[in-house]
């Protein structure tokens, strides 16, 4: 809750720490909707009890993966040497990211369940605003399929499945959304997609169309997706990815007429609770504060935002506006820890530490360098952190968004600094 001074949050420590039990939302879940409302999918954390995950990775593993994803995103925005312009680079072409052991990129941490085919088969897909192509593993897994929770989708058992031909205009759409030119099967003249992520994870298969069911009322016919025949990487037990980027092959663009290019989500507050992903407008429970989507410094498929300031404890930090405009910013459902330009992070860290002097420090946790030992407390007062966006939008973070609790002995400020102010 907000402390009486309005500038601090009082948080019960237990709310910051992982729980072994799944706490499900009672409404707005898959299949529970009125005919005239927007389709809403339940969102669960990939490694939490609501996803039936048996073993969650350690914080160190999570942050190594998170850094690998951030490194890939940075590389996409890397500047051409000398020209000062920004080159659009897709991961499979010019970008060379060192493969890190155990690192995965391209897969986020939140999962939704959708129905594919006729009759429909339920598939758990990682939802990702940072990529565009939706794909799932498909039988007969001609080359390779990794182990997944749901049965692998079988096109031969669906009456609505068909491959896209090489000569179809849809086939030529693939390059902008995957970074790879499509291939063509010599035998069947079917369009072949390939998508590769920065850690060398990939999916290759038939580009196809199929009926996608978001709920029993919301059925998308002729949805273009990747039917993967060779899939390798650390995608966990998910059946594939749901691409929510801005390219024309993303689900957002493919359903533009039906849902008006609007979607929204509430991410689960913890790995043991659930949220939702909704397509279409309307039904917003509260007033919304908007900020423009920017072009993200030329990499159009990402959702760019303009951060203009940060407040800690109600006071705006003395950060030059050029600090934010030099780097730009994106919002990405697949990144765990928000990265800030070095000068902005230093200012945030300094102000936050001043507001936390009552609590003993703890060792750093991987990329998180400002940690506290809160084991002697049941509730703590933390300075309120707010982000200011272009257009006058001020966003107050709640405690879950400010602190990352690994254990009562190690609760950390949930931000990290970039090394390069241009990143």
């Amino acid at each position: 809750k907000v402390a009486p001074d309005g500038h601090h949050l009082t948080v019960e420590l237990a709310a910051l720490l992982p729980s072994a039990a799944c706490s499900r939302r009672s409404a707005k879940v898959t299949g529970v909707k009125k005919e005239d409302s927007s389709p809403s999918l339940e969102v669960v954390h990939r490694h939490g009890p609501c996803a039936g995950a048996s073993k969650a990775p350690s914080e160190a593993e999570i942050f190594v993966r998170d850094q690998a994803r951030v490194d890939l995103i940075h590389s996409k925005f890397s500047e051409e040497s000398g020209s000062g312009s920004v080159q659009r680079i897709r991961p499979s072409k010019a970008t060379k990211i060192p493969a890190k052991s155990g690192a995965t990129i391209g897969s986020g941490n939140y999962i939704v369940s959708v129905g594919l085919g006729t009759p429909k088969k339920e598939l758990s897909l990682i939802f990702d605003t940072g990529s565009d192509l939706t794909w799932t593993q498909c039988e007969p897994c001609a080359r390779y399929c990794y182990s997944q929770k749901d049965p692998v989708f079988a096109p031969s058992k669906s009456t609505s499945y068909s491959n896209i031909s090489c000569s179809s205009p849809s086939c030529s759409q693939l390059e902008s959304g995957t970074g790879n030119e499509p291939g063509c099967s010599s035998a069947t003249k079917s369009c072949i997609y390939g998508i590769q992520y920065g850690d060398q994870s990939f999916s290759v298969g038939y580009f196809a169309k199929e009926t996608l069911s978001l709920s029993s009322y919301d059925v998308i016919e002729n949805f273009l997706f990747g039917c993967g025949q060779n899939n390798r990487g650390l995608f966990g037990s998910a059946a594939g990815l749901l691409g929510l980027g801005q390219d024309k092959i993303s689900i957002v663009k493919q359903t533009a007429q039906k849902y008006g290019q609007i979607f929204s989500y509430c991410l689960p507050k913890t790995a043991s609770s659930t949220g939702y992903l909704t397509f279409g407008g309307g039904g917003n429970g509260g007033a919304l504060k908007y900020t423009p989507i920017t072009k993200a410094h030329g990499v159009a498929n990402f959702y760019g935002l303009d951060v203009v300031g940060i407040k800690v404890g109600g006071t705006q930090l003395p950060i030059s506006s050029s600090v934010f405009s030099t780097s730009g910013a994106i919002i990405d459902s697949g990144t765990v820890i928000t990265r800030l330009p070095p000068a902005a992070y230093d200012a945030l860290k300094s102000a936050f530490q001043k507001g936390m002097t009552a609590y003993p420090k703890a060792p750093e946790l991987s990329i998180l360098d400002t940690c506290y030992d809160l084991s002697k407390y049941t509730s703590v007062d933390v300075p309120k952190v707010s982000f200011l966006f272009k257009g006058g939008t001020e966003l107050d973070l709640d405690a879950i968004g400010i602190l990352y609790g690994a254990s009562p002995e190690q609760v950390c400020l949930a931000f990290a600094g970039n090394q390069d102010p241009r990143s």
Partner: peptide, 30 residues
Amino acid sequence: VAIIGNVQQKSLQVVYDVGGGRVGFGYNGC
């Protein structure tokens, strides 16, 4: 004192209005 809501359990709704070129944040939408 009546506790009618718990701020800690509220989540932030994020709305992507791609056609309108804007992202919205809402406190009471979840």
